[in-house]
Design a protein around this nucleic acid. Structure first.
Length: 807
RNA sequence: GCGGAUGUGGCGGAAUUGGCAGACGCGCUAGAUUCAGGUUCUAGUCCUCGCAAGGGGGUGGAGGUUCAAGUCCUCUCAUCCGCACCA
């Protein structure tokens, strides 16, 4: 029978669709559960190969888990808010909602075509009021707890997106979506979520993730949080006594401080430059030189403020400077410069002729680095009573000393900043806030949620928040006093939507709460999350933050949302990421038309292990098609009843294959090797067809089909039916292997002389060492290499090798 | 600059625990099938010397440990990724 992928796909697609419960699992405490999640896609309109690969990996696992008897939650939804819909609206005059929904419909069709086993009964789209009302609800809960707040802040602005970006969305000083567009700084009233309140928890509970998350992602998150321990120290301005607070991790070097440097925007700058318009102007220029900075090539510049500060440790008068490399956003916005022990300070002080004083020297066993400054720990000199102490001890003593005298305290600073969520765009969740001229900024009462996004709106892309242009949205009565007031017109960052969507999947139609906590207790944590590494910090840190807030709200019991994370590699072609610009895109639909969905899935699993980048290769796809057709032909054809002389061999191969594929599922997911093993089995069957008894053939073929089922579900389902078996194949138990049948009863033992291969012995398994050595030394080929030499030593590893060392 | 990953035939990759380097697939070569092409089936395919039997070399490079190294250690080169004035 010929392999007609089109007919097979169409047949099973419609059969599967007639069984809506096929991929649905209820809460069932009597069975082990498995929550498998792939990152929800933005509905751009078409699936690309990266999606197919992502879902093929997930689907193989989902089907395998079903066959192993798990209750599997495998949902899919749509990250449906966001800029592209709005841009399309500007360009094509298509309403964002209509555009988005039609994209979703199209992509859902593609999903079905590829045969992914999603439970569509929990499908959700984040742009629907039933979903985003809970974004608003979470926002109000955070507001109540002081975790959402508004402030006037300098923020990152992308002139192409016409909106604010979170710090996490700025890449190399440019917008994450427009890599050639430098981010500008603007001062705006913005809403923030206080992720910094959870900085310590986010850092500490990384320990819980070490087993199941890639180390790389955890390292990135640790760096992003950027905790550093140190001290805050007050330097007083000479004459006025005004304190300048600096943060340092190296209080042990404080006696080497030779100046104090403020960020140009530091609040004290105004006072310190009072009466000196020349300095004030220079400071403004400094601040500007930071703007749109490409951090790599910013030249350090500074000005002397003609004022002095007193070092509280040794009473020295230090000049006060302002410099562009000191950041207002980090620490206290002021530093003490210790040029002898910090490379940046050294560079700055050298440039301006500020003196350098060494206060830490390397210990004897420490190699002195050839660097400009000695930045490592050592032993203190020139530090009054602290001289002679090692750095770490000095830090403790000096901090304690400063605390006693009231001018210093231990302090911890984080690199992570609060999450700015205001976006001056239309297609997002409205922030549920009313600005009343009398009562100020008020939350929309919970019972008035959702604040609906108006749909009758023309998007122009010009001039600020589009919602300001919609009078019936904008004008509202104050919920407290009833006077005319205005709604907040900014919408939320779409990363809010994706920070908790996986909870909603468990209870997607709940209209009283975001979800029923009892259902969460059954399904959570997510057993396996699969997605691209590009979300290592953005989405994955926001999600962890949301979970901790939800835990504190009593909604969930788990501390972390995701037990195991898998980051799959990219799909590349001709050495580059697939992109329209490069013209190297392969459309999944094209492949599905020509070779079928199973072929596309199989190739994306076979061409590389899933965590590595996959090099798309058209000829390789043909190979996969050939393989499926070869399996199909073999399983569906009549087999002559053989004499059974190859039964043992074929059964052994079968059970070895089952063992191999099962192991791959249970450990590292190297499905490329699983498929290679299945191919070997098929090759063996072709070769031994005539020598296999009918009985063995009858047990081998169904097992082969089951092994293939997680990878090529259409073909497997059809073959299962062709074998006269009852499906669906994903409800059939996974084949088990018999170790006795899988075991080899003979071993090929390699004989080496001085590590070089000189012969082979075929012996029964577990042949004793002495016997192996005897036979090795008796082998004529081996003897030829021993001629005239003296045997020094013989190393024997049973069932593996004999190595004869001669001189 | 700091941190991490990777480096194996013409190509994608395998070798999971120090024990036969190159499984499996692509490509290529030959044979069979076919009017021919394609399909399918079979065999071969790391490099090199040799008619052959057989030998020599080989996992980015250089050293080392070991009876034995793709695998462990040191140094080094290349590519990719992340971070980058975070005090």
């Amino acid at each position: 029978m010929e392999y007609d992928h089109k007919a097979i796909e169409e047949k099973w697609q419609s059969r599967w669709e007639q069984q809506p419960d096929l991929f649905h699992a209820d809460v069932d405490p009597s069975r082990p559960k498995y929550y498998l999640l792939e990152m929800l896609p933005y509905p751009s309109g078409t699936l690309h190969m990266g999606h197919i690969r992502n879902y093929a990996i997930g689907d193989a696992l989902a089907r395998y888990k079903w066959m192993r008897g798990y209750s599997v939650l495998h949902p899919m939804g749509w990250d449906a808010f966001g800029l592209p819909a709005e841009n399309a609206a500007i360009k094509n005059k298509r309403p964002p909602r209509e555009y988005t929904l039609s994209n979703i419909a199209h992509m859902k069709g593609q999903h079905r075509r590829f045969g992914f086993s999603y439970d569509w009964s929990c499908e959700l789209a984040t742009c629907e009021p039933e979903y985003y009302r809970w974004n608003q609800w979470f926002f109000l809960k955070m507001l109540e707890r002081g975790l959402a707040y508004r402030k006037h802040a300098r923020v990152n602005w992308c002139p192409k997106c016409n909106t604010v970006l979170a710090n996490e969305q700025v890449v190399d000083g440019c917008c994450w979506r427009h890599e050639d567009t430098p981010v500008e700084q603007r001062a705006l009233e913005q809403w923030f979520l206080k992720i910094t309140a959870y900085a310590d928890q986010l850092l500490d509970s990384i320990a819980q993730l070490e087993e199941g998350w890639p180390e790389r992602v955890l390292t990135m998150q640790r760096n992003w949080i950027g905790r550093s321990e140190g001290a805050r120290i007050d330097f007083r301005v000479a004459d006025s006594g005004e304190p300048i607070t600096v943060f340092t991790t190296r209080i042990d070097t404080i006696c080497g401080a030779t100046c104090v440097i403020l960020a140009p925007e530091h609040p004290l700058m105004e006072k310190l430059t009072a009466g000196r318009p020349d300095l004030a102007a220079a400071a403004r220029r400094l601040a500007e030189s930071q703007q749109g900075r490409d951090p790599a090539d910013l030249v350090k510049e500074g000005i002397f403020l003609d004022r002095f500060a007193i070092n509280p440790f040794n009473g020295e008068r230090l000049p006060i400077w302002s410099a562009n490399f000191v950041l207002m956003e980090y620490g206290t916005g002021a530093i003490m410069a210790v040029p002898a022990h910090d490379d940046r300070d050294y560079e700055f002080c050298k440039k301006y002729g500020i003196r350098v004083r060494h206060v830490v020297v390397p210990t004897e066993d420490q190699a002195t680095s050839a660097g400009l400054a000695f930045t490592e720990d050592g032993v203190l000199i020139n530090s009054g009573p602290f001289t002679g102490l090692p750095s770490d001890e000095a830090r403790r003593n000096m901090t304690a000393h400063g605390r006693e005298r009231g001018f210093a305290e231990a302090a911890i600073t984080y690199r992570i900043r609060d999450w700015g969520i205001s976006r001056q765009r239309y297609w997002g969740t409205p922030i549920p806030i009313v600005h009343c001229p009398k009562c100020g900024t008020l939350p929309v009462p919970e019972d008035q949620l959702p604040v609906l996004l108006p749909l009758n709106i023309e998007i122009t892309g010009m001039g600020g928040s589009p919602l300001r242009q919609v009078p019936e949205f904008l004008h509202v009565k104050c919920p407290r006093c009833g006077v005319a007031a205005e709604r907040e017109t900014d919408t939320m960052d779409t990363f809010v939507d994706s920070s908790w969507y996986f909870y909603r999947y468990c209870d997607p139609r709940n209209d009283r709460q975001p979800f029923d906590p009892a259902k969460i207790r059954y399904w959570f944590p997510i057993d396996q999350y699969i997605g691209g590494v590009e979300h290592a910090i953005l989405h994955l840190i926001y999600s962890r933050f949301f979970t901790k807030v939800m835990r504190d709200l009593g909604l969930v019991a788990n501390d972390e949302p995701v037990k195991r994370l898998f980051t799959q590699g990219m799909v590349i072609r001709e050495g580059a990421k697939m992109s329209k610009n490069l013209g190297n895109v392969v459309e999944p639909e094209t492949i599905a038309d020509k070779y079928g969905a199973d072929t596309a899935r199989l190739f994306s699993l076979f061409a590389a292990p899933p965590e590595k980048d996959l090099d798309w290769n058209d000829a390789g796809v043909e190979g996969m098609y050939r393989f499926l057709a070869r399996v199909f032909r073999f399983v569906t054809r009549e087999h002559p009843a053989g004499d059974g002389s190859a039964d043992r061999q074929v059964l052994r191969k079968l059970h070895q294959t089952i063992r191999k594929v099962t192991e791959d599922f249970e450990t590292r997911w190297h499905f490329n090797t699983s498929l290679a093993a299945i191919m070997e089995l098929v090759n063996e069957l072709y070769q031994q067809e005539a020598n296999v008894s009918a009985a063995v053939m009858e047990q081998t073929l169904p097992a082969l089909v089951l092994l293939l089922a997680p990878f090529a579900p259409y073909t497997a389902e059809e073959l299962w039916a062709q074998l006269g078996r009852q499906g669906p194949v994903m409800r059939v138990p996974w084949p088990s292997f018999d170790p006795a049948l899988a075991a080899e009863d003979e071993a090929e033992v390699v004989v080496q002389v001085n590590g070089k291969l000189r012969g082979r012995l075929t012996v029964p398994k577990q042949t004793p060492k002495e016997e192996l050595e005897r036979r090795a030394l008796a082998d004529p080929k081996v003897r030829a290499h021993l001629d005239g030499k003296q045997v020094v030593k013989v190393v024997t590893v049973p069932d593996k090798l004999v190595n004869i060392v001669v001189r």
